[in-house]
Design a protein around this nucleic acid. Structure first.
Lengths: 205, 205, 205, 205
DNA sequence: CATGAATGAGCCTTCATTCAT
DNA sequence: GATGAATGAAGGCTCATTCAT
């Protein structure tokens, strides 16, 4: 799907390239100061071009935020797909998937923090567009779980996927408490142990 | 601890009253537009006084946010204490506590959303002051869990308390997905079932 | 002459007393921050009463400035009259008068600085009223000079009186240069030497 | 020395040009209302640009005042140097110098008034920077005097230079009295006569 | 008479956006 | 296509002044 942002530039390839530069610079800027405190001048500078050029590739400051959120989601999703796409159906697979997902969340914690903290600054329609991507990710997770535990009810599947999903995000969001008490490995193992006890019981039931 | 915000007003009781009005108006405003998009004039209006009067009770716009966050935390904590403070140590108690907590989070979902979404707009020291209150709430939760399941390790206790804590918050945060699929009662029951299976296993182990 | 400032207070004696308190506090405040930077609240506080009470004795902030300027002039003039009122007509008298005047300017340098630096903030009519007092002081000086040197032309008298007058003020105004190089005694003696050489020549001419 | 004021404009030449426009407009505005009463919008308008543009060339309102003071000093000094730089050492030269200086002060009386009345509104460091320029001017005067009257003591030189300096300024400052009684030529001649009598005597002594 | 809470006009400053070069 | 100077709406905040108690 093409990004629904107008540009006065004709060269499609150039647009892609510039928007990538833009998005890269903007993320690191938003990490530091958040979207609202970052000025368009700073955004342009961080992206390596002039304020005038910035406005050749976007129409409003909000568009930058959309570009950023979109890019983060795309990266998260791409990396999730990379390690979720597997045929095996074993506990080991799920363990591996959860581990990989938590590592991804650890790796991208700043980006994910930006994503959720600035989401509300997007216009409603952009929010929905972006949240749809999140649903797709949840489905990825659900599928992996179902592969190993096919007997779970829909509700159970939904809620467990959601729990795993947010537990990964919380590792970054609540770093002020979690990362003071646990290493990532500890956190992953503990969460997986708990998860397993839930799933085992369900399977048994 | 007294709110560390200067005021040019001498009547201490009036300060309390006005700040409460202020905080009430501000929360409902921040729910709609967020802190950054709300102007000081709007804040004053929402609180029912003039811009001049607003600045008799705060020094900077930021102070309003602090007042708001502080008040939300205080209310959440007070209400948690109200139903957590119990002597019984049974599963039933824990169930009741989780249920009450989830209901609280349902009741205050807008406030809690504001709280976490604007926290980063506070100055660093105010953030820390506020996060300390969160730690106290976690301890409340831990204590309730421990009463019923005294054999849990510290790590298990921490992580389970955290999980419950954020699952409550997520009911509001992720309403776009959870509240579409579940009623609050369903969500509570499902989460508690999962929780119980974890705890039972641990107890058994 | 009564100060042409309205007051809602009836008791004349109280008005005098309050205005004196006001003026005393204001001068010391204006010394520090100047008229524009001083707020009415600070003025009231410096005078020892509330902002409400302040406005019982003045109508506008400007009135405070007028009161202050007026009081400074009155004090300067009163003290000048005290040592200028003499019947003797000798060089010694003039020397003494200049010396006393310079000492007065040294003593009141902060006040005089305030006076001249804020004069332009007064309304035109108040400025004129105040400058009339300055003319009277110049006349005092002229009379003392003329007593000793009766042959001076009107122009000479005017200009010499003016020169002495401003040389006294400059001791305070240009303290950053004069008071670094001279003691008050040195400055006085040097200026008087120069003055005498002018006057002697004129007398001889 | 470069003006130590930041600007977001890159074109150095444009900065010079705009700041000159700014300074010209501001002086004439400050003449009328003084620095404090002039709003930034008025300053921008007087300079011929918008409020936004104003702030591309300065950072704070104070900077305008600095620009103005600095420019006035520079002009005064440049014009003084123009007629003081002479090799001859005669009374005639000194007379000419004093005459030219008084004419300069007459010509720039509004600017000089602004300069001294608003100096205290500058930050301390800017005040010192500006007063240093004044010292240089005094030295110019001292040198001219010394050329004609090499036997004067340091103290005499300092005080006579100071006297001349302020007598020039007073022509403008005290116009309400001096310019009512004298023409500039009269004032100049009278002051020079007095000065000469001082100097002659000293030479003779 | 004294007090101080309330008011709002108006100030300084920022920054998203435009457009001539 | 790129640049950056120009713009002005809008925001945060102050403070002289009023008036009910």
């Amino acid at each position: 799907m093409v990004k629904p942002i107008d540009s006065s530039i004709k060269d499609e390839k150039l647009i892609q390239q510039r928007r990538e530069e833009l998005q890269k610079g903007a993320v690191s800027l938003f990490k530091q100061k958040g979207f609202h405190r970052a000025t368009t001048r700073e955004i342009a500078k961080a992206a390596g071009f002039s304020i005038g050029t910035l406005y050749e590739y976007i129409r409003k400051k909000e568009d930058v935020l959309f570009l950023v959120c979109d890019a983060i989601y795309d990266e998260v999703k791409a990396r999730m797909e990379a390690f979720f796409e597997t045929q095996e159906t074993s506990e080991h697979t799920l363990h591996q998937a959860v581990k990989s997902y938590f590592e991804l969340m650890d790796d991208m914690q700043d980006e994910v923090l930006v994503l959720y903290q600035e989401l509300k600054a997007l216009p409603k329609d952009a929010q929905e567009y972006v949240l749809d991507k999140e649903k797709e990710m949840l489905q990825l997770l659900e599928r992996v779980i179902q592969n190993s535990y096919p007997d779970l009810s829909d509700h159970q599947l939904t809620i467990i996927a959601n729990n795993i999903f947010i537990q990964g995000q919380m590792w970054g969001f609540r770093r002020w408490i979690l990362q003071k008490e646990f290493t990532l490995a500890q956190y992953t193992n503990l969460q997986f142990e708990l998860l397993k006890s839930q799933l085992e019981l369900t399977r048994g039931g």
